[in-house]
Design a protein around this nucleic acid. Structure first.
Lengths: 340, 340
DNA sequence: GCTATGATATTGAACGGTCAAGTATATTGG
DNA sequence: CCAATATACTTGACCGTTCAATATCATAGC
């Protein structure tokens, strides 16, 4: 039955409506030059025959595919990817696009972009939290395909959408300073991660600006284990601290465990701030004060920006910066001077 | 410069190689009928001109797109989606496909599949953890597109790849029984979730098979909050229990908090088993005994199965069942009879 | 020496749309 | 009343492939 299913084409519809195929094309593309009566008739027929224009044929002539690609570059630790693709897929669909997802490494980036071009992808959202690359290089390899990075890349003048990591970190550090803390340690994400680099520097600089000496620090890699080990190291360093800024809620969970093992009480002995406001952060013991990033907003905005860029490639590239919020819970509290 | 970039076509290559375009086509598709010498020459030229076949044109004639679609249906709670799309994207690429991701609801499912067809998607991976639908209905709406569900759907005789939830649950429950527990409570995912349905039933049936009366239970929705509330309810029910099976690690975190608030010690008073073996489960207090699912395996296998199905649509549909593992940590321990 | 054979290469027609230019008819204005 | 214009619709070419049918040629068989 359906095996013999001849695809209905624009010409079949045209024949049924006794007009030419071009008229049908005009209707499909909502272009003027068709009388209301004919338009209705054609629309009805398309409905009846449940006709769908062949995307391949459209692509062939228009050189566009109504497809965006989310290119994930060198993302190893999964937790933070979360629903990005789902969010982006939804946003893309709402803008009339499909979303292709692909995953690659820095070494294969150029190739990935070439194949994006071959697939006639209309634009690329790059999610590359560790990618250091010059703007010129990006322009060179992306073959003119509109591209928006879904990252905080303050050194780049190309299009990106990201959370201001300096602002976010300032939020965390100044919250602690405001509570009276003077010895503030840090477990930043490792500097290979762009966010790690900025969080580390922002932590240090905020302290210096306030006339405070940066406390001990030790990098993590986003995993709970790394937070655990980093916290151990910081304690082992012997340098005193009454507060700790931990680069993600996940690492904070590891840090909490490590500190507990050392008999350090939270928040009585040490106040802790995490990042991300994951669901988890409300359920740690004690619940974590944390920096909230609305990632779904970032995903949506990246798609939105990209579609704008596709619609008008002439608009001047800019950067869309999102700001984080501070969520205060019970892992931070005012410093109470010990009676020494 | 690049603005005037005329796309190089198969005919350009043909001209340069002084052969016909069809010969080039044969080379591209690795078909026989071309002498080794000509083949080499053409390959070299394609390399030099960095020619890439136009996917749209290929799609138009072949009616295939070398694209798979991951269709996410009614997934609300994000945590568990995690890296599925990334895993699938990688697996797809390794099999020579691109991966399209889209997100939809039950109500729009038919439409989503129609548009998949219009896009000439070669096959669909459906991730629909709550979708109850007859096999006939699925066959009807998917228009002959090969489809593999990435779910445990024991009632379906169509293609699916999933973890045996009954086996998994048995693993959890019998572990507890083996430790001497006789009063085993449960916080299953809500029955709208297919996994929830099966976990609940498997919990109950395993107990009955062992001659035990099912303990109190209360459903959750995957969120930590729901685990928290469910645990409160179970305690409030007044029915005694010495062990608790919680449908996800996330919910277990909530449950841990609730039980702690009631002064119930884990594992001294109550043993707990979670599901998923998330990174988190090793960092709860105490670390959670849990059921491990290798989700990345499931994603990969779903892609693999789908590509097999595309290659040979005649193969008899079957179901690929994965088995979970039990990871024992400190949240479970032998029941010590109280001296009453 | 002539035909059968297989390997290699060519040609023309799809595939299902879009685009640019064209025609036919009705409407307007001077 | 006729040219100018607007509206509605049509035609032919083209996008870059693949596919089926066909041509060419050297080699082998008899």
């Amino acid at each position: 039955m359906t095996s013999k299913k001849k695809n209905i084409t624009i010409r079949d519809i045209a024949k049924l409506a006794s007009v030419s195929y071009q008229t049908v094309s005009l209707v499909i593309n909502e272009k003027p030059g068709v009388s209301e009566k004919t338009r209705r008739k054609i629309l009805r027929l398309m409905e009846e025959m449940d006709y769908r224009p062949n995307r391949a044929a459209q692509m062939l002539t228009t050189h566009r595919s109504k497809t965006l690609e989310m290119l994930i570059v060198d993302v190893t630790y999964g937790g933070r990817l979360a629903d990005s693709t789902k969010n982006a897929a939804r946003a893309a669909r709402e803008a009339g696009y499909s979303l292709l997802v692909s995953e690659t490494s820095f070494a294969e980036l150029a190739e990935a972009l070439e194949s994006a071009e071959a697939r006639l992808v209309d634009g690329v959202i790059m999610y590359a939290p560790r990618l250091r690359i010059s703007d010129d290089e990006v322009l060179r390899i992306c073959n003119g395909i509109p591209l928006v990075r879904r990252d905080y890349v303050p050194n780049s003048r190309l299009a990106w959408v990201g959370f201001d990591q300096v602002y976010a970190t300032r939020l965390a550090v100044e919250h602690l300073i405001g509570l009276g803390h003077r010895q503030i340690a840090c477990i930043p994400p490792m500097p290979e991660l762009i966010n790690g680099y900025w969080r580390y520097n922002a932590w240090k600089n905020t302290l210096l600006e306030h006339g405070l000496e940066p406390g001990p620090f030790c990098e993590g890699d986003y995993s709970m284990r790394s937070g655990y080990e980093a916290a151990h190291q910081i304690v082992a360093s012997g340098q005193p601290f009454t507060a700790l800024v931990v680069g993600t809620d996940h690492m904070a969970v590891g840090a909490l465990r490590a500190l507990r093992e050392h008999g350090i009480r939270i928040p009585e002995d040490v106040s802790i701030v995490g990042y991300d406001n994951t669901e988890l952060s409300a359920y740690t013991e004690p619940p974590l004060t944390t920096i909230q990033f609305k990632f779904s907003k970032q995903d949506e905005l990246a798609v939105k920006y990209l579609t704008e860029l596709i619609a008008d490639p002439q608009i001047e590239l800019h950067q869309r910066v999102l700001l984080a919020d501070l969520i205060i819970r019970e892992s931070t509290r005012p410093l109470i001077d010990s009676p020494s």
